[in-house]
Simulated assay, not measured.
Amino acid sequence: MEVSVRLKIKSLYNGLSTKEQNIADYILENPISVAHNSISYLSDELNVADSTLFQFAKKLGYSGFKEFKMAILIEENNFSTTSIHEKIEIDDNELTMAQKVFDSNIKTLTNTKKILGLDDLKKAAEIISNSNLLYFFGVGGSGILAEDAYHKFLRSPAHVRHSTDYHIQLMEASLLTPQDCAICISHTGKSKETIRIAEIVKEAGAKVIVITSHASSPLAKIGDVVFISISEEIEFHSEALSSRISQLSILDSLYVILMFMNKEKSKEALSKVRRTIWDVKH
């Protein structure tokens, strides 16, 4: 299946130069304008040379800017049709509503899977594996994901920490060392609380792994490794709800990779946890 322009841009975003990121931001925010205007008009809008836009299109795998514009136009037309089709109608029955929610979540997972990068997964797993302490940070809905990840990674060889209290999170962040790392989760990547935590973590010299749905967000710019979750939304279906499916899958993937990187220690940790839980349940 052909990867969309949006997904291509998001998958490459963190490796782009500042000028290229500005172009990417403009395209993501103004796809219709890009599709319907000349390269000269757009270069004036962005204050870049025509050749810069041409090279940007080539970097995404297109033969030139004309083919790039056509891809955006087709994508936007398909997106409009899909949105109308998937929108939950007032006369939909309960089963139809549920099926549309499932379809949306499936699409979210499929799109996020497309932009996962091997290098990012390897780097993140190595950072976690080599860290003395692994902290999970998030507030609001993202805090629930952080807690779920903490619960999961307790079964791994990693030494994990998590708190639901924001003030304690701030204090924990300030105590990190260059031998530690933090996973910061925020759907928008604009949460002032999470951004501040990430800044404190960086100031302490620790590594930051970011999970967000917005590649151009302030939080994403702080991360040593950034994973982008793609949201596919329908009416009355919150973005945070849709994105959490893909974010959970990213965290599950890191957990599984870490466990396989440290098989013997993983077996030992998992065995201890299982014995303890068994004693309580039986």
Score class of each variant (00 low, 15 high):
residue 174 S to Y: 08
residue 182 A to E: 08
residue 175 L to R: 15
residue 179 Q to R: 11
residue 133 L to E: 06
residue 161 R to C: 14
residue 197 I to F: 08
residue 171 M to Q: 15
residue 233 E to K: 12
residue 135 Y to P: 01
residue 148 D to H: 13
residue 163 S to Y: 02
residue 133 L to P: 01
residue 206 A to C: 07
residue 132 N to G: 09
residue 146 A to M: 06
residue 204 A to M: 07
residue 151 H to W: 11
residue 199 E to S: 13
residue 176 L to Q: 05
residue 197 I to T: 05
residue 190 K to W: 12
residue 159 H to G: 05
residue 198 A to F: 01
residue 163 S to R: 04
residue 155 R to P: 00
residue 215 A to L: 09
residue 231 S to R: 02
residue 156 S to W: 02
residue 156 S to F: 04
residue 135 Y to G: 03
residue 133 L to K: 14
residue 170 L to V: 14
residue 129 S to E: 12
residue 185 I to S: 06
residue 214 H to S: 14
residue 147 E to R: 15
residue 183 I to R: 03
residue 231 S to H: 01
residue 220 A to R: 13
residue 130 N to E: 14
residue 217 S to T: 10
residue 145 L to N: 13
residue 236 F to H: 13
residue 225 V to M: 06
residue 196 R to M: 07
residue 138 G to V: 04
residue 160 V to I: 12
residue 163 S to F: 04
residue 190 K to P: 00
residue 217 S to M: 03
residue 152 K to Q: 10
residue 157 P to W: 04
residue 139 V to W: 15
residue 169 Q to M: 10
residue 161 R to N: 15
residue 133 L to Q: 11
residue 139 V to D: 13
residue 153 F to P: 00
residue 226 V to L: 06
residue 203 E to G: 07
residue 182 A to N: 07
residue 195 I to K: 00
residue 158 A to R: 05
residue 237 H to N: 13
residue 155 R to V: 09
residue 229 S to P: 01
residue 147 E to P: 01
residue 187 H to L: 05
residue 128 I to N: 05
residue 232 E to Q: 08
residue 141 G to P: 10
residue 159 H to Q: 14
residue 176 L to V: 06
residue 215 A to W: 06
residue 140 G to F: 03
residue 148 D to V: 10
residue 231 S to I: 02
residue 235 E to H: 13
residue 218 P to Y: 11
residue 236 F to C: 10
residue 233 E to I: 03
residue 174 S to L: 09
residue 174 S to W: 03
residue 141 G to H: 12
residue 158 A to D: 12
residue 229 S to C: 05
residue 187 H to A: 08
residue 241 L to R: 11
residue 224 D to Y: 07
residue 154 L to E: 13
residue 187 H to Q: 11
residue 217 S to G: 05
residue 220 A to L: 15
residue 187 H to R: 03
residue 225 V to H: 06
residue 152 K to N: 12
residue 146 A to N: 10
residue 157 P to L: 07
residue 236 F to I: 05
residue 128 I to R: 06
residue 137 F to S: 00
residue 131 S to N: 01
residue 180 D to P: 01
residue 187 H to E: 07
residue 208 V to H: 02
